[in-house]
Amino acid sequence: MATGERITAEGRGALVHLPRQPEAEPLHDPRQSDVDEWGRSEHIRQLTRRLYGPLYRSWFRVEWEGLEKIPTEGGALLVANHAGAIPSDAPVIMHGVEEELQRPVYGLADHIFKAMPIVGTMWARAGGVAAHPENAYRLLREQQQLVLVFPEGTKGPGKLYSERYQLRRFGRGGFVEIAMRAGVPVIPIAVMGAEESMPIIYKNATLAKLVGAPYAPLTANMLLLGPLGLVGYFPSKFKLRVLDPVHFDVPPDQERYSRSRIMDEAEDIRVRLQENLYEMLRQRRSVWFG
């Protein structure tokens, strides 16, 4: 209530013309670590990439299709389907794009990460950012970066194996609104393989409520590997298909965009992703070998 904009700079008070100050010398900045404003550390990111490389290449054996549709410069919002109890698709996309195109991807994740000790800090250092519209806008519009978001949110990875590859609701289309405001295209990516890497066979709503998690799953990995199943992914073959970018023909930085337009665009993208997933599944002979 109190932080509204009723004290304005317009129209009054400007009694004195503000002098244009010359560009000052850069200030002395005695930094000691390489953690940037987003909480990323280049050092830790390199280390993570080195550790994740073998998993990406030899375990999931990731194959891309249409990677050239992701621009090598300028902002773009990548959206994908989301799956697996602890989703493996986010690191696969982030690592893959960075390896292939030599540009970083800022993965947006639920705020709940920031409330978790260690996990939240590591996630931020490795390149994750809390999914706040303001953060996404700043990355896309002002810094012209690639941003990855999963519009299904936690409903995607929280679904049972029996519901695999069936996209959930795309939130309220917030990702479309952000892309419109930032004036960047949305690039959908269909991911095949994440569902089978850590399938959920049972969920307990009471337990989830108790620990304050969005879902409390029992995965096939846990059944087979015990506690190791928390981190042990099955070696499903990953195939990713980049779909044609969606450009919205609207001026950026508007106060508001048509709600129905947003919902329509979001639904179109969802349908297109769903169709592509079904098509990819029709061509797949084996979960493990593609």
């Binding site: 932080t3 909480g39 920031k114 409330a115 939240g120 950012v129 809390a130 706040h132 519209p133 700043r138």
Partner: peptide, 12 residues
């Protein structure tokens, strides 16, 4: 934990 990375003046 739900804060943006930067608060601007008009945000609550």
């Amino acid at each position: 934990w739900e804060d943006p990375v930067w608060f601007r003046e008009e945000m609550t």
